[in-house]
């Protein structure tokens, strides 16, 4: 384990831990969605750091990058995780937007943003009778 791994993996996972703490300790739906956004950012950082190679350049050739198209191997970082994260960021926005709309709808009907207890079916059947 080198210092870089400690800083990057440690920092990213602490960030994810903050998000998980948020999900576990907060009931407000919008706050929970924010916590999930933090987790999403952390996971995206994880993916990109998995593809990082020390001392290499960004995966773009030609122009002012100074890397020739024929010598990319061994001189740039792995482009796959970056492509995946590009996809994941857009997906994150889509899920956030939809979750927010559901939260707004819930608020409009109940006047609250707190998702009250879930049941596994063995309790909380009182509401049904009304």
């Amino acid at each position: 384990m080198n210092g870089l791994a400690l800083v990057f993996y440690g920092g990213i996972l602490l960030l994810i831990a903050v998000g998980i703490w948020g999900i576990l300790s907060r009931r407000n739906l919008i706050k929970v969605i924010m916590a999930i956004t933090i987790i999403a950012t952390g996971v995206n950082l994880l993916l990109v750091s998995v593809g990082y190679i020390s001392g290499r350049a960004a995966p773009i050739v030609g122009g002012d990058t100074g890397i020739d198209a024929s010598s990319t191997t061994g001189s740039v970082v792995d482009p796959i995780p970056q492509a995946l994260v590009l996809t994941a960021i857009v997906i994150g926005l889509a899920t956030t937007a939809l979750a927010l709309v559901a939260a707004v709808g819930y608020y409009r009907k109940t006047g609250s943003l707190e998702l009250k207890s879930w049941s596994y079916g063995l309790t909380n059947e009182k509401e049904v009778k009304k």
């Binding site: 080198n2 791994a5 993996y9 994880l46 998995v50 990082y52 190679i53 020390s54």
Partner: peptide
């Protein structure tokens, strides 16, 4: 993740 070396090619 530490098992997955950071920055290694």
């Amino acid at each position: 993740f530490v098992e997955v070396d950071f920055g290694e090619p």
